[in-house]
């Protein structure tokens, strides 16, 4: 059965990027930052493509944010997604509930069977968008999925939680937030990149509610005192052994 899939991606700074706090003290300096598709979301794109390859269907990449976000949409198109939807806003909202609200408004009328997201974005780590989408739409939702398959209208996903694990099943439509461990995303092929240039990206204005999670101040974590790094045999191993022994049976 072909599935109509929306995959919501967030553009975030590269994991390796140096993060500098901007002069306003509430946002980060964007200059010089290289942007990527947030890793869990990128893995969700891969899952969407695999489902399409197995069952047929259509994959729409959805991203909310300023102009720069279009590059990430093109990247997901180059991987093999069929169409793009860019919900434009500037700046990026800091409150994840605002993002989820705008996505809900855009996705509801478009009639998707399955909405995929990453379980969290690596920038603000809000960890709530898939659940909010599902509740706003009245659909079932599983997050942190590490496997995902579809049979007919039934979705099956495995989700670990600490030392527990469950395999859950629900009928479409539904929302799945995936973990990167579900599988590494493919690289776009040269052909894919060329094709992506001709694919349609619909541009719409993001309908944003007022943010209620307000970042009052950003600061750097307190600098750590420089560690003691020495070669084995210098006596450092005794210091470490005493420290470890001191922690045995003591509660913190």
């Amino acid at each position: 059965m072909p599935v109509k899939i929306a995959i919501c991606i967030k553009q975030t700074p590269d994991t390796e990027a140096r993060i500098r706090i901007a002069a306003d003290g509430q946002s980060i300096e964007e200059e010089g930052v290289s942007w990527i598709i947030s890793p869990h979301d990128e893995a969700a794109v891969e899952q969407a493509l695999q489902l399409k390859e197995a069952h047929g269907g259509h994959v729409t990449v959805v991203a909310l944010g300023p102009r720069r976000v279009e590059r990430s949409i093109r990247e997901a198109l180059a991987m093999g997604s069929d169409a793009g939807l860019h919900l434009v806003c500037e700046p990026m909202p800091a409150d994840a509930s605002v993002i989820a609200g705008a996505l809900t408004k855009a996705l509801r009328p478009r009639g998707f069977d399955l909405i995929l997201t990453g379980e969290q974005a690596i920038d603000l780590a809000g960890s709530q968008v898939p659940q909010r989408l599902s509740i706003a739409l009245g659909w079932p939702c599983v997050v942190a999925a590490e496997t995902l398959s579809i049979k007919g209208r039934m979705v099956q996903a495995r989700r670990p939680a600490e030392q527990k694990e469950a395999l859950v099943r629900f009928a479409l439509p539904g929302v799945v937030g995936v973990n990167r461990r579900i599988g590494e995303p493919r690289y776009p092929s040269f052909k894919g990149i060329m094709r992506a240039k001709r694919k349609a990206v619909e541009v719409d204005v993001a309908q944003l509610a007022e943010g209620r999670m307000i970042i009052e101040r950003l600061h750097y974590p307190p600098a750590k005192a420089e560690g003691q790094v020495q070669s084995f045999g210098s006596g450092i191993e005794d210091t470490v052994a005493r420290l470890l022994a001191g922690h045995i049976d003591t509660q913190v």
Partner: peptide
């Protein structure tokens, strides 16, 4: 709460 993988800490207020 930590942002950007812990590179920055944010003080947030929830107006609700």
């Amino acid at each position: 709460r930590p942002l950007y993988g812990g590179k920055v800490l944010a003080e947030v207020h929830l107006a609700a």
